[in-house]
Amino acid sequence: MRRHTLSVLLQNKPGVLSRVTGLFSGRGFNIESLSVAPTIEKEVSCLTLVTTGDEAIVEQITKQLHKLIDVIKVTDMSEHEYVEREMALIRVKAESSTRAEVLRTIDIFRGKVVDVCPKSYSIEVTGSVSKVQAIIDILRPIGIQEIVRTGAVAMTRGHK
């Protein structure tokens, strides 16, 4: 069992996303995160999907995705050099006793404060999935009130 990041180019048409998610639920494949947005071509969307499974399962996922009529291309990023990023918005408790510590932590992770309230900060952090997880783990004892994560997006390294 290994984590795989799949990059799927899709025709940007109504219902395409539900074809993909329906495929996963119908065949019992697992989705850890999913993110989708248009590409430079406006008829084409890119869907980044993180899943786990053994080689046979991921091969089957890739083939089944290819079989969908609206799927243009499926790339298993794990077979390439690639960059992967995720963004998270985190609302963390920031009372007078902890404000400095929170700011220091944000600084170490090169995050940004995007909203300030009397008793909390909302921060934005970007990085690999493990980095985002790391800051969450560090802030948790201080008191996280809410987290929203985008799920991973990925791109292969090097020129095309």
Binding site: G15, S18, G22, L23, G26, I69
Partner: peptide, 14 residues
Amino acid sequence: IVGITRPCTKHNYL
């Protein structure tokens, strides 16, 4: 019906 038959058609259209 497009939603209902999505998993049991090769493709479908509205």
